[in-house]
Design a protein around this nucleic acid. Structure first.
Lengths: 169, 169
DNA sequence: CGGTTTCGAGACGCCGCGTCTCGTAATCTG
DNA sequence: CAGATTACGAGACGCGGCGTCTCGAAACCG
């Protein structure tokens, strides 16, 4: 769909602020009504446009050990959230969900970060570094939470790459 | 200031959706211009109204051991974020910051959760359960991240109280 | 070629933020 | 006490976004 392509391009070239329905439609050379024919809201378009990119950008080359694997993945997530256009849109989307019930429901259960964490966690399980019975959603939250928190509260501005879990050195 | 009182009341009685500048002013029995005389934006009012409540609601009775202390604090944070009116406003504020640079700067460095985590972490240090040299901001992110992630992505809807760190049982 | 469907364009209604204006009420001054 | 001056409640206004509605032209079909 040309609309999704337009969303991606707009995101890259003009930034999130320009991501208006009118802008998207114009960029796609399409009437607004046509956009609303396939998606019911702006959030829905964004979600679809962003998820594909997110999954591609969050695939990492496996490292030899679990700690390294985790660290690399976390750094990828940090970069995604702070540098990638898709990541910035993702943040806007999650942000919107905090005060818009409909967006929240849209996101529920299809979180890009959790999906991306799955293979990493499964590698850890295969290596025996993570209990086989662990709940993947909880493990993903443990792994992603700290970076996510840092980026969302803006407290991660300074230092480059925190470690997966507490206690350095 | 009667305006802050009005914000609190509105938040409790009408919910976040009703938190409009017109509504706040009307509720406070004040003209909008008067509100803008003391605060430059809606985010600024919200921040001020929410921070006080947040700090009060996030003080917990110290537990005997660090793991229990952490668990109790995390549960308090989870309740704050999902049930408290102030917490819901906090989420809206952090959400807004994801696509509004000005709000992001407003929040930077004054995060209510990090502030609330400080005494908990210091108790852990005093008990020798946490290295004295640990960076408090990082430790706070490790402690708060998982809950924060769960609530913000909506994946925490189901289960009541996750543990501080990985691996249950 | 005539009828029907699709679609781009954009006007419109609605609502929120933040600014501007006005008339009244409170305060100050002689 | 009265006239001048300031503070402030009320709300009109401009702007911009989302989502809906309308229209006329183009594409498609028989």
């Amino acid at each position: 769909m040309a609309v999704l392509r337009a969303v991606d391009d707009l995101l890259v070239e003009e930034g999130y602020a320009a991501m208006t329905m009118k802008g998207i439609a114009a960029r796609a050379g399409v009437g607004k009504q046509t956009v609303y024919r396939w998606w019911t809201s702006k959030a829905e378009i964004l979600l679809e446009a962003v998820m594909q990119d997110a999954r591609e950008e969050l695939v990492i080359e496996p490292e030899a050990t679990t700690p390294r694997d985790f660290a690399r993945f976390i750094e990828a997530v940090r970069l995604f959230l702070t540098e990638s256009h898709a990541g910035i849109a993702y943040r806007a989307l999650v942000g919107e969900a905090q005060h818009d019930q409909r967006v929240a429901e849209l996101l529920r259960g299809s979180d890009a970060l959790v999906v991306a964490a799955r293979p990493v966690l499964q590698r850890a399980i295969a290596r025996g570094d993570l209990s086989r019975e662990v709940d993947l959603a909880n493990a993903a939250a443990d792994l992603l939470g700290p970076v996510f928190f840092g980026v969302f509260t803006g407290s991660a501005a300074a230092h480059p790459a925190p470690r997966p879990h507490t206690r350095r050195r």
